[in-house]
Amino acid sequence: MAIKLEISEEKEVYRSSYFPEYVRPKIYDPGLDETIKRLTPEKIEKAYQAVFGKETARIKAIVETCIHCGLCAEACQWYLSNDRDPTYAPVAKVKMTAWELMKRKGKVDAGLVYDIARIVFTECNICHRCSLYCPFGLDITFIIGLVRRFCFLLGVVPQRMFDQNQTFMATANQVWMSQSDYIDTLFWREEEGMYELKNLRIPMDKEGVEVVWFPLAAEPKTGPYHIDRIAKIFQVAGVDWTMVTMNDYWDSSNMPMFIRDFFTMQRIVKGLYENAARLRAKKLVLTE
């Protein structure tokens, strides 16, 4: 008896009920799939009113100027790397998210919120290239950011991004690194670097310096060799520099910005600037 093998090459697909063209592989993300179950029409409308309710010049100018020419598409890496799929074009993303919300005045169901969250969080990097290609210079990413804010207010955010945000709330950096860990890492890297460069110093909390360097939290955590490399460069270049260890605000990767958690985002930026001001530093250098 021959065994009939059935191998299905096709993956399960997700098809939006609002936009038939929007077809994507099916994924499971608790941050999206579980949170949309908690939504009610009132909550959605409240969040919509909080973000789009007040008429502002920037939203008005963007919505009333866009003539749907599709020239922004050429700028988008998502569009170019997905065989020019129309649903990845920046203007299409705005159409499927902000315009749809505005057209329905926020009276939408959870299914659309899922689509919207998936589009703005997982298919746009907020890189601003589309604005540079738009004949009107419309700030498309500003609209995407507003929609992210709308999703954040509803709690519909991919789990990893939300988790990172909570890490920032708790520790002001991305990787759960404590202050003592951080100081310890810097001493360790100073010691390691000394074998290669004589008298290498990693100055900490030095006042009146020219440059204060804020690393990404991933550098002391997973790529510690970056620290002594940068230190060597600073030392050889003769730059008067320092790193901040006096409190927790030293991580420049402001992840709350990406989900538009304004409160945490503000705390981080304020912390960094206050530290620099306390040391009377002239310049801030951040790791990109």
């Binding site: 100018a61 963007i62 100027t65 866009c66 210079g137």
Partner: peptide, 18 residues
């Protein structure tokens, strides 16, 4: 949306400043 005739100058000015 034919107002893009004037709004062109405003939206461009804003993006250029950024």
């Amino acid at each position: 949306r034919l107002t893009h005739m004037y709004y062109f100058f405003f939206t461009r000015a804003w993006m250029a400043s950024q």
